[in-house]
Structure formats: structure tokens, C-alpha cells
Nucleic acid binder design. Structure first.
Lengths: 198, 198
DNA sequence: TTTTAATTGACCGACAGTCGGTCAAAGGAG
DNA sequence: CTCCTTTGACCGACTGTCGGTCAATTAAAA
């Protein structure tokens, strides 16, 4: 019998080795030949582990998003006000240079998933959005139980996730500043959502 | 001198003749050869009037969006409550079958404009978003001056436009119902934004 | 007849994805 | 131990598709 490789591991290894390449080129300009070269394997081998280009890119982006979930959890445990937590949540993505690059890739991914969402993408998207909402809800519920926020806050804040996607899409095109917009919206919202203690 | 054609007119004619084709195929599966055939011209001629495929698609989509602006203006003049107007504004896009097809094309366009926004796209996007905001603001300002809504409503409602983009992007992927989501958000928001007359 | 705008489709290069074939390691028969 | 067979891993030349180009052609105006 011939050697048996760990398909899952090799799959992840190939994807991992192309992380930087993807960040550098973007999805559209990343070619399968480049990937093969970078991973030091033949082009045909790629297709032993991935069904198509989308599949590879998705694998890499999945890891970006998982990184980000970790960052979110860190924020949720920081010693800052509820408003600052929510702000950081939505701003994290637009933050520094590294994440700007990731944002660009994420945008391209959004683009693809918008046009041809595969079952895999939908499942992952729902899973990661649920996770995001869970963390966010926990923060808000805490604030409500402390009497900081009105109970209806939950049902409004939960929509911010969709707003966040919109912001990622429109930021560049509309020439708006994501940070400012989030700040502005949260400022206005929190005035309405905070319980008045008079 | 040879005949001089009206470049602008021919440009529009070519685009117009491919409206249905675009709705049927989607951007990705629409080929230049198909366009040339549909418009009964040679493939090379296309490039006398458009700089690339994107350029054609953009021309067609521009006309979709302009159609939509007309529909918005109609809604703004209907005899319905402020909340219903705003609801219709954001729901219009997700409405019936014809507009569902347009929405799909619009999503593909969003995808392209997200990745490679051209100067033209940015300008158009800003112009059409300004128009949208103007109509929306007028409605809200009227409601404020009538004492229906709190003054801060302006600054919150204006963000709905971005939310709307997010909804277009995420609707299918998250398996959510755009109509329900808009309804739900507006219901929650209006409770907070309506002036209490007690 | 000459000039020049307009048009055209054969052609090109890039790229995703395929396929026939090679290779090396792991049994297993003798 | 050795030689043969099996089999999964691997490969890159090749294919088909498509956006975009350009040399050749047409025909109206001067």
C-alpha cells in the first residue's frame, strides 16, 4: 500500500502557506498557479484538496474570521463601558493596517458569497454571526440587568451586525469614515437607549 | 468626412438592448459575445462605446437605479404614515419578482464596486445616495416639525441606508427575511423616536 | 479619388480546471 | 530478503472559455 497523507492537515497547510499571498494579491488576482508555487506543489495537486479556487480562498478567510472572533471575546472582557465595548466590536474590523488588508479580502469574500453562496459559506456565515450575536447580547443583557439600558436595546442593537456589513461594503465607495459613522450612530442610539435615572 | 454617429445615443441603445439579457444571465455569466449578438453589432464595436465589460454593466444598472429613484419619489408622495413611508423606502428593493431579479444584479454590482470601485461608480453612488437621503430627510423633517418624531430621528434614520445595503448583502446568506427585519427594526426604533404626547 | 470615421470578427493571452500518466512506498508471495 | 503488484499522491501539459485587441474592410463625405 502507498502512503496515506492526512488530507485535512495538508489542506490546512496549503491554505495557511498562502495567507500572506492572499492578503497581498487579493482574491481576484490570486492565481491557482501562484498558489501551487507558493505551496511548492503541482497545480493538479491543489485540486486533490480543494474543489475550486473559491474553496481555497474560503478556507483562508475562515481562519481570518476565527482570529477575529478571538479578538472580539477579548474586547468583551475588557474593563470599559458597555458603549465602548459595542463600539470596539464594530470598529475592530476597520482598525489598523493589518486588519484593513483583511477587510479588503473579507470584502471580496462578501462579494463572492453574495453572488454564489455555497452551502458551506451559508453555514459558516450563520455560525459566525450567531457567535457574534451571542457575545453582543451578553454584554447588552448585562447592561439591562444593571439598569443601564432599556430592555428594548437588545432588539435594536442586534441589527447593528447587518449595519456593520453595509458599512464594510459602502465605506470606500461613499467616501465615509467607518469609525465616525459607528461613533455617531452609537452616540445617538445610546441617548435613546440609556435608562434615565432622575 | 464619414458619417458621425451619436456616440452617447448608441451607447445607451446598446446598453438598453441588453437589459433583459443582463437580468436573465447575471453579470458573471453575461459574455461580451452575447451582448454583441443581442445588440446586432460586432464584438469590437462594443469597445468603441465602452471601455470594458464593467462599463456596460454599469450603464445598465444605472438605469435600474434611476427607475428606482422614481419609485421612491412616488412613495414619498403617497398618503401613508411616516413609518409606512420609511418602511416602503427600504422594502421597495426586496419587493416583487421583477425587483428581486434587479436586486440580484444590484448585488453583483455591489460586489464589483466593492472590489474595484471606479471614479464613475463612486460619483454615481454618492449622487444616488444623496438623492435617497434627501427624500428620506424631507419625510423625517416634516414629521419632526409636526411633532410626530423627536429631532434626533434625523441622525438615526440616516444610517438606515447603510443598514439597507447590509441587508441586501446578508439576506440570502443568513437566511433572514428582509421584510421582517426592516419591519422589526422600524417598530423598535419608532417606539423610541416618536414623541410621547401625554 | 481620397480621406477618415465606423465596424468587424479572427485572433491573442490569461486563467480555471482536467486528465493521462509517473512515482514511491507499502504489502505480500516465494 | 527480494522482487512484483497495488495504490494513493502528485504533476504539468492541455483544454475550453472569455475579455479584450487590431489589421482589414466598408462606405460616406469631401
Amino acid at each position: 500500500m502507498a502512503i496515506i497523507v492526512d488530507k485535512d492537515k495538508k489542506r490546512r497547510d496549503i491554505a495557511l502557506s498562502c495567507k500572506d499571498l492572499l492578503l497581498e494579491c487579493g482574491i481576484k488576482d490570486l492565481t491557482i498557479s501562484q498558489i501551487a508555487k507558493q505551496a511548492s506543489i503541482g497545480k493538479g495537486t491543489i485540486y486533490e484538496y480543494f474543489s475550486n479556487k473559491e474553496d481555497i480562498v474560503f478556507e483562508i478567510i475562515t481562519s481570518f474570521i476565527e482570529d477575529n472572533e478571538t479578538r472580539l471575546e477579548q474586547v468583551s472582557e475588557m474593563n470599559i463601558s458597555t458603549k465602548e465595548k459595542i463600539f470596539s466590536f464594530y470598529f475592530l474590523f476597520f482598525d489598523d493596517e493589518i486588519y484593513k488588508k483583511q477587510l479588503n479580502i473579507y470584502k471580496e469574500y462578501l462579494a463572492i458569497s453574495m453572488i454564489n453562496p455555497t452551502k458551506k459559506m451559508i453555514d459558516f456565515s450563520q455560525k459566525s454571526c450567531k457567535k457574534f450575536n451571542d457575545i453582543s447580547n451578553k454584554i447588552i443583557e448585562e447592561a439591562i440587568s444593571k439598569g443601564e439600558l432599556k430592555p428594548e436595546s437588545i432588539n435594536i442593537i442586534r441589527h447593528l451586525d447587518i449595519y456593520h456589513t453595509g458599512l464594510a461594503v459602502e465605506e470606500q465607495k461613499r467616501g465615509i469614515n467607518a469609525k465616525q459613522e459607528i461613533r455617531n450612530l452609537l452616540d445617538s442610539l445610546f441617548v435613546l437607549l440609556e435608562e434615565n435615572h432622575d
